[in-house]
Design a binder for these strands. Structure first.
Lengths: 216, 216
DNA sequence: CGCGACCTTGAGATGGCTCAATACCAGTGG
DNA sequence: CCACTGGTATTGAGCCATCTCAAGGTCGCG
């Protein structure tokens, strides 16, 4: 793990969590649709006519390099609005991670809304994306997984026990790792007593404060 | 370099560049200030009362982990607006990379503006940040440097010859690498005939299309 | 000319990747 | 009830890209 010597360590300070957007805040008027596991909601390159809000389930938005490397930009959980683009063309592909219910609304219906809400969505996503950049650029595998779990727990308002809708592959592609490294990191965190894993999709944060410290 | 086997390669398609925001588009009414090299413009944790627009020079916005690892979230070039936050607290630190002239305006003056403009700024930054995530998560060192140079050339409307205001350390902290790896990667790209380096801050893109291909 | 900041280069260490085998588990059909 | 199958997760062994540590080079400036 690298340390830039020229920047001295700082004392811990409470890092402001990204401003939480309340699910009720953004009301989308549109039709509810159901997507099955791995079903595409929209594809990169398509025109961006609709915006979406997750009702239940989980959605991933990602890009794929020409040789097949995939990077997941974001997971959207119930209450999250997604699919708002700057241009008229989709820059990512969105798929249902698990069976998902989603409200679909015309983009124009949202644009007509109060612009401040639109802005709130974008800045919220921006803050999350910049946190993601920090994770991918400067954190080791253990820290990446820890911050992923801590973030997820906060977003789902879950207690200690998390139900992961994602496969190891999804987690790997979000964290810029391989599936094997994610798996090994989980067993390593278990060995350290930081988490407990029941079946592989259910995780208990056994030592939340230690996990939090791992994210610095 | 890893390839996720389960995602098949796709034929190349023109990737939409992030929607460019014209410098004149956002007019900030405020006082011009001058910052010297490495001078702090605002610090993480401070209250976010002002917004900024670069007139000349370059600005970096970054976060530092407790042990000193630094990740630069974004470089701002002339015409760019920065410092717009979701909350009232700064989540990054901003510094002048080189001597820089910046317009400083009260946050409220911008909020009163057309909300759509605010939104445009945020979505633009979001798209850039997501591209950054892809770079850090799935690209090798050579690809990172190539996409950095290609992006920079596009943003500065430079021809083939780029004047870099950044030190190797800045580039490393933006690309999630070490200074040594950045340096080695430059010499490697030179050996491949993709770029030419005069003094270390001046680079000519000798083979732009090959550089572009490296970014897929 | 000498100093300091920055950059380059080399040699060795290592974290995470690749490839490959095995384990787990739910669903299906005999 | 059990064997089989396919998808998913874990584990192991070896490799390689990048990091670390260290030395040397370049260049602007006093």
């Amino acid at each position: 793990m690298q340390v830039q010597a020229m920047f001295s360590a700082r004392e811990a300070r409470p890092i402001a969590a990204p401003a939480r957007i309340e699910p009720e805040e953004i009301k989308l008027i549109g039709q509810a649709r159901r997507f099955s596991r791995d079903q595409e909601i929209y594809g990169e390159g398509e025109s961006a006519d609709f915006v979406y809000k997750v009702i239940s389930g989980t959605v991933r938005a990602f890009r794929v390099l020409a040789d097949g490397r995939r990077q997941i930009a974001e997971f959207y959980l119930p209450g999250d609005v997604f699919g708002v683009e700057a241009g008229i063309v989709r820059r990512t592909t969105a798929e249902a991670v698990s069976e998902a219910q989603v409200i679909v609304a015309r983009r124009s219906s949202l644009v007509a809304e109060d612009g401040a809400k639109l802005w709130r969505i974008a800045v919220h996503d921006l803050e999350r994306s910049q946190e993601h950049v920090l994770t991918l650029g400067r954190r080791a595998a253990g820290e990446r997984v820890a911050s992923f779990l801590v973030d997820l727990a906060a977003r789902t308002h879950a207690g200690e026990t998390l139900e992961l809708p994602f496969s190891r592959q999804d987690i790997a592609d979000y964290l810029g790792l391989t599936i094997e490294t994610v798996s090994r990191t989980f067993t390593h965190l278990v060995a350290q007593g930081l988490i407990e894993v029941r079946c592989c999709r259910q995780v208990r944060l056994a030592d939340p404060s230690a996990l939090h410290d791992l994210c610095e």
